[in-house]
Design a protein around this nucleic acid. Structure first.
Length: 335
DNA sequence: CAATAGGAAGTCC
DNA sequence: GGACTTCCTATTG
């Protein structure tokens, strides 16, 4: 049989007749624009006050994490608006321009050089970051990056995770029993029918995943760097291997993964002293919840999670720091 | 009152 | 059997 319905495989590719980052960008804009709620997600910069600030904020947050040391230039970098291809999505550009509208092109000196190379580079970096985020989520959830391959269980995990990440209203059982193929075949309208409040955003997020999977497959021929490249500064090779091979993830690995993505999880858990491996759990309930999603343990809570951490004391994996503080732990072997 | 500590038994791969 | 998970009691800040 035709197995994967034609539309399924054609859809992403037809969309990607445009450059990959154009497509992703469109999805990103959608997600950012649509999901702007009273309480935006955790991607660091200040919550947008208006819908069109949402997009800028969305991008800037990525600039932020690309240039954590000096994000000031990005904050006033309307260079973003000097796009070369306005013909394509005219109505989406003004949104980006909203920052420039404020005037103040501070690109006078040094800015020009930046402007020259920045746009495309920044765009590809942003896309790269999105792809990395997806890889991270895959690791944390133990699901494949291509939604088409998801089991109904995987779909539920992804839904729970995405809900949590972007503070979407719970979909409950609206998508129960759906596998990845069915999910991917659904239109935005169908998403909205199943989940009137968050369906549209969920669909946009899924779209990003689909695009990413398509891009990944397209470039996979020579590229096996994917897994390892996701956590630049992180573990040793052997550790990367274990987290890439779909083996059950250990709690300490999970915690480290969260710690490696401060722009996504910094409000839940963060380094107090990265060199020494000291970290603080800022939101114990949420960290436990994510761990529960990962392990399919809906009843997981901080009481149980912390008991697991305490098992690490004996094993010499995690300990309490010399100066014990609430919710602060230390990896015995940092880096 | 939530966090910490650790024993004990159960589950899951 | 290892790596949690679940439950529980006692202690601490």
């Amino acid at each position: 049989m035709g197995s994967a319905s034609p539309g399924l495989s054609i859809m992403p590719s037809s969309r990607l007749l445009l450059t990959p980052d154009t497509v992703l960008r469109t999805d990103l804009e959608k997600v950012a624009g649509v999901s702007v709620g009273p309480e935006r997600q955790d991607w660091s910069p200040s919550p947008p006050a208006t819908p069109d600030q949402g997009l800028s904020t969305f991008y800037l947050s990525y600039f932020d994490m690309l240039y954590p040391e000096d994000s000031s230039w990005a904050a006033k970098c309307p260079g973003v608006s000097t796009r070369e291809e306005p013909p394509k999505e005219p109505e989406q550009c003004p949104v980006i321009d909203s920052q420039a509208a404020g005037g103040s092109l501070d690109l006078s000196q040094g800015g020009l050089a930046l402007e020259e190379h920045s746009l495309e580079q920044v765009q590809s970096m942003v896309v790269g970051e999105v792809l990395k985020d997806i890889e991270t989520a895959c690791k944390l959830l133990n699901i494949t990056s291509d939604p088409v391959d998801w089991s109904p269980g995987n779909v539920q995990k992804w839904l729970l995770w995405t809900e949590h990440q972007y503070r979407l209203p719970p979909v409950g059982k609206a998508f129960q029993e759906l596998g990845g193929k069915e999910l991917c075949a659904m239109s935005e309208e169908q998403f909205r029918q199943r989940s009137p409040l968050g369906g549209e955003v969920l669909h946009a997020h899924l779209d990003i995943w689909k695009s990413a999977a398509w891009m990944k497959e397209r470039t996979s021929s020579g590229a096996l760097h994917y897994c390892a490249s996701t956590s630049e500064e992180s573990w040793t090779d052997s550790e990367v291997d274990s987290s890439c091979s779909g083996q059950p993830i250990h709690l300490w690995q999970f915690l480290k993964e969260l710690l490696l993505k401060p722009h996504s999880y910094g409000r839940l858990i963060r380094w107090l002293n990265k060199e020494k491996g000291i970290f603080k759990i800022e939101d114990s309930a949420q960290v436990a919840r994510l761990w529960g999603i990962r392990k399919n343990r809906p009843a997981m809570n901080y009481d149980k999670l912390s008991r697991s951490i305490r098992q690490y004391y004996k094993k010499g994996i995690i300990r309490k720091p010399d100066i014990s503080q609430r919710l602060v732990y230390q990896f015995v072997h940092p880096i």
